[in-house]
Design a protein around this nucleic acid. Structure first.
Lengths: 221, 221
DNA sequence: GAAGGCGCTAAGCGCTCGCTCAGGTTCGGG
DNA sequence: CCCGAACCTGAGCGAGCGCTTAGCGCCTTC
């Protein structure tokens, strides 16, 4: 049996996203109808707190103010929820890096922009990012493969900026793939340790990390 | 009811560890008797592959070649298994960092040593490290608090090396706690992405990361 | 070679999980 | 005013979970 899903599959990623006064995208605005979005937001919170496997469908439905059965009107399985979250989150992450990579400016400026905004997202949306970056293994093989492909695109964008800097003679990087890996690893891990009650704002972490990465690539003033 | 556990609790962490010809410690040699160790090793593998919550006690026992009930002769609960793994692993990690921190040499040399050996452990023992670093949330409050205390000691060791370098005028670090956090985050995340079939050996990753961290602290030749 | 107990297994208990399904409620269109 | 579709709930199914218990075989001890 095939259920009709209310979340529109063909919708281009961020086209319907609404902007707030702060300029940030209102997250999940592309998920409709309202009940499906509430369930998804509840799932993000629950997965981030307890992890995918420790979260029950009853918990998700409860947070969304619905009965356990309501979940299965909008999503085929619990795994589909994780898949949608992961897909939308990775689309957003790739979008962020790509914007910086395709921007104007020197390699150093583009790398700083990329790291700053990537880190800001991982800190500011650390609830989402934690699910997106650390619950990948809970997906089935096809879904995981799809997400891994997106990750490789993120990696390629960052590597190409660093490569540009090396070729322009601005950076000193003996091992470009290795350094790319390290830079991304550093940024992604922000989602694991970032704490809203901690001493640093997402902006401050972004600035700190942009500086650290500038040093890692041996940028010459 | 209180079961008598066969794993001796009072044993000092690494005192009974046996060295192999390679100079590496034989992991888990301090866990006795043999059946308890086999169960623990099986649990490490299973937790690393699937995560704590997705691993069943039947799976652990099966990997150790025993019936599900055998697990409860040696461990009170599944969580106690994770606790022991986490405790021993963190003891080892702290030991590694502390050895480097207390060594002779300049701050730059000690920092490089610490990062190199810390990373080498996270890569070489990435199965263990993954459990130790990423399954912390599955522990109960008291056990988690104990582990977090160990982590703070690791953080303190690294911060003190960096602080030494700053005070000696060797390093240029505007934000010592932030940089310490970033360095540790970078090293720990190795456990997440390291792949035995990948292009890099643990030694190579250690060398690469020691160099990257040297740059992050602005070491002046 | 009988006694005692340690380490283990077979069987299964009580529970909660992901998920299903029949039926009730709401609401726009004819 | 009624129909059909969309949405949601209450009740619960089968499965698999963590963990327990009764008892068996095999070592050690005398």
């Amino acid at each position: 049996m095939v259920l009709t899903l209310s979340v529109k599959k063909g919708r281009t990623a961020m086209s319907a996203a609404q902007e707030t006064s702060g300029g940030e995208m209102q997250p999940w605005s592309e998920v409709t109808p309202d009940a499906a979005r509430r369930l998804l937001v509840a799932a993000v919170e629950a997965f981030a707190e307890r992890g995918y496997h420790a979260t029950t469908t009853r918990d998700i439905a409860g947070r969304a103010g619905m009965s356990p059965a309501a979940l299965y009107i909008h999503y085929k399985t619990k795994e589909e929820l994780l898949h949608r979250i992961s897909r939308i989150g990775h689309d957003k992450a790739l979008d962020i890096v790509r914007s910086a990579a395709e921007g104007e400016g020197t390699a150093a400026e583009r790398l700083s922009d990329a790291v700053r905004s990537f880190v800001r997202w991982h800190a500011g949306q650390h609830t989402t990012a934690r699910v997106v970056q650390y619950e990948l293994d809970a997906l089935g093989p096809e879904a995981r493969a799809e997400i891994i492909a997106l990750r490789r695109q993120v990696d390629a964008e960052v590597r190409s900026i660093i490569q540009d800097g090396v070729e322009a003679g601005d950076f000193d990087v003996p091992d470009v793939p290795g350094t790319t890996l390290a830079v991304l690893s550093l940024c992604i891990d922000v989602a694991r340790w970032f704490n809203v009650d901690g001493p640093r704002t997402p902006d401050e972490v972004g600035a700190l990390y942009a500086d650290l990465v500038r040093r890692m690539v041996g940028f010459k003033e």
